[in-house]
Nucleic acid binder design. Sequence first.
DNA 1: CATGAATGAGACTTCATTCAT
DNA 2: AATGAATGAAGTCTCATTCAT
Lengths: 199, 199, 199, 199
Amino acid sequence: MGTDKKILLYEAALGLIEEKRDMSNIKVADIAKAADIGKGTVYEYFKSKEQLLAESIIYFLKKCIKTFEESINSGGGFKVIYMAALKNISSTMTASRTFSQYITFNECNFSIKKTMQSLIEEHFENMRRAYVEKFEKIIDIGVKEGVLKKKPDKFSWLIAFGNSIMCIVAFKHGFEEFVDMTEEEMMERSYNMFVKVLT
Amino acid sequence: MGTDKKILLYEAALGLIEEKRDMSNIKVADIAKAADIGKGTVYEYFKSKEQLLAESIIYFLKKCIKTFEESINSGGGFKVIYMAALKNISSTMTASRTFSQYITFNECNFSIKKTMQSLIEEHFENMRRAYVEKFEKIIDIGVKEGVLKKKPDKFSWLIAFGNSIMCIVAFKHGFEEFVDMTEEEMMERSYNMFVKVLT
Amino acid sequence: MGTDKKILLYEAALGLIEEKRDMSNIKVADIAKAADIGKGTVYEYFKSKEQLLAESIIYFLKKCIKTFEESINSGGGFKVIYMAALKNISSTMTASRTFSQYITFNECNFSIKKTMQSLIEEHFENMRRAYVEKFEKIIDIGVKEGVLKKKPDKFSWLIAFGNSIMCIVAFKHGFEEFVDMTEEEMMERSYNMFVKVLT
Amino acid sequence: MGTDKKILLYEAALGLIEEKRDMSNIKVADIAKAADIGKGTVYEYFKSKEQLLAESIIYFLKKCIKTFEESINSGGGFKVIYMAALKNISSTMTASRTFSQYITFNECNFSIKKTMQSLIEEHFENMRRAYVEKFEKIIDIGVKEGVLKKKPDKFSWLIAFGNSIMCIVAFKHGFEEFVDMTEEEMMERSYNMFVKVLT
DNA sequence: CATGAATGAGACTTCATTCAT
DNA sequence: AATGAATGAAGTCTCATTCAT
């Protein structure tokens, strides 16, 4: 069915993006081959290469938020949920280093024309809002549990989350300053810093 | 003279990178035209487009660290220097949003082949070390002045700086959560959070 | 079908080589046009211009030996076969003056890189051996018929054949010393000289 | 002086032709460098690259005939002179394999435009006539000495000389049929065959 | 629906030639 | 007279897209 083939192509495209770390070098032929589909068939489902790439990114963004939601819905207390949230972001970023930048900065290095860009940016903004919404829920849990004395203002907890994410990124990237730290340690310190900042 | 023309081409290339937010779409012809130079002349100074782009990035990296050094050497107390550092980073990032990602994550979306990449990565690492070194000096000033009770561990102050930078990026990016804040306010809060985290 | 188009391109390339007497000035666009094929299509069948030219030459070499075999298999006595052989070589050389040199000297003036050269040289050597083999059979017929008293040594008959070929080349080339001779006369004298030398 | 620089450039060009076995890949810059002369200076002496190459070839042709004359003027009887002539041609061909073809067939694989071609062809024809003239003198000596019973017709001795030359070429080329023969032997057999054919 | 052969616009790069010094 | 930096025309090759099957 049509949709199935689209998803096949999304996955193929995303796979190649990860592999190459560079969207500009990806060829339609490569994507088609990776999806085990004829080159011409791509154009039955997408108007252009641009469109396919743009939609692939949107598909990725939606998947991110979905797995994020799942990860924090597993239950547990504030710390457990906070950790789960960070772990999810961490693994998303590991799985998709190229997109990490995209997600974090909403900059589009990709060779996608302006028309597509706005489409993506809209979806990105949606995703960011969804993340922020979930973050707020996590904060509320922290307040209810008394880990956070009183609900901090939005600026503060947003930046605190940003901070935690930055820890992960730096760690994942393997900067020399972090090499003799285990992931557990890093997560623990990250948590402590998070609580400290917001108290 | 040769060097002059190389710099002319660096600037032209960097200008286009900023303009286009995408290195993969930049054509040699464009760079040459922007530098007001014949297309063939480019190849008198660079072996290939790749080389020109790679060297342009390295040129940019060196310029970044140079202006950063200058900005924090203007004197003043801890808070002044901290603010100057942030302002420099802020303006560098504004001037060069595309590179922000590169600098922060050391990922290279650019269509530059593996050989060039390693060249760039080496230079990037040098630059990062230079920044970290300067950051430490700023921390030391804070300690001497007594703003920071005792010298925090490297992990903490690195992340704290990262945090401050993230505030700027978020602000510059115009996320809706920050729209009713002035840059001064943001910087002030950023400073307060910085000190709080490290105390 | 793939093979057909390759042959189309071989013929087009060979045609242009003959026309221009110089392989270095042939453009891919010319070959494609001559084959009534899109420029890009050439690269569906050949990795590079080099490859196309090299393969074209090999195709030519194989065709030469094939028509040579056919020409001497038409039957008849020693003189008839000798004449047929010479006629074949003569017409091959007329059809392809540029290649004549190649075939005779195994030198490759063509702008073909070293890797391709060795490929061609191998094929050329094969072809040369095939010719020598056929020549020997012709000699054996001459001996059996008693035209040649006893089988001459290889050096002698090889050179004798070379000599005959040279007569043709000189004649074809229209050197002034040969202008008042008909092709028949030349062939007759050539034959007589051939027999005389080997007796 | 002007002329000196021209000769410098001729020699440089010829050297590169030999080295590369392919005139089409020779660059003006290469020739200039080989002659230790500025690139622009070439155009003080030659209207174009074409002209330089064409004149270089003509220079070579003249040099060939000059050394040939010298070689056969050293005196001695018919056999000695014949051998000297062959030796000269042999060494010329060794020194200049690329030109061998040119000289033998008067075909121009070189990337030289039609206008230059006719210039070269005229000079080639002159050279060929000069060679033929000298050959005739050698024949006359053979007749006078009685080695050749009576003066053979032009066709015969021309072809006989061509034959001898072909022996050298084949030998020099290292065809497998000739590998267990010394140059002396080959020359001796060549001489014998020459005399036999013309008797 | 699915395909992949065919295409040609356009990119990078080379190099003969010019010209200011 | 000598130079070499600068040039741009022209060539090779890539690849998104089309279209007949």
